[in-house]
Design a protein around this nucleic acid. Sequence first.
DNA 1: GGTTCTCCTATAGAAGATCAACAGGTGCAA
DNA 2: TTGCACCTGTTGATCTTCTATAGGAGAACC
Lengths: 114, 114
Amino acid sequence: MAGEKTEVLQGTLDLMVLKTLDTMGPMHGFGIARRIEQISENLLQLNQGTLYPALLRLQQKGWIASKQGVSENNRRARFYSLTGAGRRQLKKEAENWERMTAMMARLLAGNEGA
Amino acid sequence: MAGEKTEVLQGTLDLMVLKTLDTMGPMHGFGIARRIEQISENLLQLNQGTLYPALLRLQQKGWIASKQGVSENNRRARFYSLTGAGRRQLKKEAENWERMTAMMARLLAGNEGA
DNA sequence: GGTTCTCCTATAGAAGATCAACAGGTGCAA
DNA sequence: TTGCACCTGTTGATCTTCTATAGGAGAACC
């Protein structure tokens, strides 16, 4: 009831995960999700069915690596961390995002000149 | 060869089309595509296979209406224009976009406080 | 010792958007 | 009449996210 539920903009999730890992260091999936929801001020609901396939995808592409460990709450958890390639990919996607927002800003400004 | 080809961020196309129609008035599909490519400084390549289904979708939702007409080059063309509901939807999506970019800005800034 | 709660990982199937590729009609100029 | 630029579509594949479901395991309370 309380306002709109916002979905994750397709193609943005990778960037969010990569950046979160870059900022926070190694984290487990649950923690990543919580962090993103916090940053979004709970506007964004991150489903597990969204996150874990994404984490798998990122691993297969070699952008993140995972290691078994134990969480703050003493539970078994899989910790993900950025690889070198992941850091490069993050840079690339962040730049792409900047370009995208710049373009949208131009469009939304509504200037009619080409 | 010449740099990256950027794909349309999924979920962004509706907003782009709606806003274009809002700024430019009635246009045919080909023109909309050209306008968006110009604004994006040719970073964005808009496929017909992307645009026309989108135009159809937008019509079915009642956000745009179409009318047969004749283009500047004297060809038969279908002109699309915003409806009242379309204008409302545009406002909504634009606001949503603002919220999304604000959140991404927070995330990319990398502040670690919640 | 058992129950229940929260944490944490995962998978399957459906839905939706975009892409690549193809197909076709028409005005205009050479 | 040939060719080109303009203009509108459709189809099938792929990818991403969502909804729904499943389950193990520590901790806390009884």
